[in-house]
Amino acid sequence: MKKSDVPQDESNLEKADLRELCYAVDENGEYVTQHTTGWDPKTIALNNAIDAIKERVENARAKVLAKETSPIEYYMELNKMDLSVLASYVGMWKWRVKRHFKPSVFKKLSRRTLQKYADTFDITIDQLQNIES
C-alpha cells in the first residue's frame, strides 16, 4: 500500500478522536507509518457485528418477558459475554450458570448468588431481577 493510498474514511474511531497506525511505502519505496481515520470495509464489518449483538440482546429480552429465560441471559448478552466468560466472572461452572437461566431456578437463587451476578454486571439486585427498571 502506498502512503497516499492509506484510507481516511469515516469510522467510529474518528468520533472518539482516535486514529490508528498503518504501515505503507512512500514515493521512494521506503516503509513509513501513516495515521488512518478508518476504512469502510472494516467499519461495515464492525457495525454489522454491533448490530448482531443488539439483535441478540433484543432476542434475550423478548425471551425474558415471555418467561422462557432468566434476566441473567439478557444481561450476559448486554455485556457482550458468552457462557464461558460469564461463568469465569462469577466463578461457577458453566452448567450451573446455564441452570440459572431457567426462570424457576432463578426465582429461588440466594441473595449471595444474585449479588455475584449483580456485581459482575455492575447493577443492583433489583435491576437484575427486574429488567424493566
Partner: peptide
Amino acid sequence: GQIVRMQEEIGTGGGGFRY
C-alpha cells in the same frame, strides 16, 4: 465480516500484519 475484522481491526497495521 469477522475474518475481515481479524485482518484489519486495531493492531494489524493493515493487510493482516503483512505490511
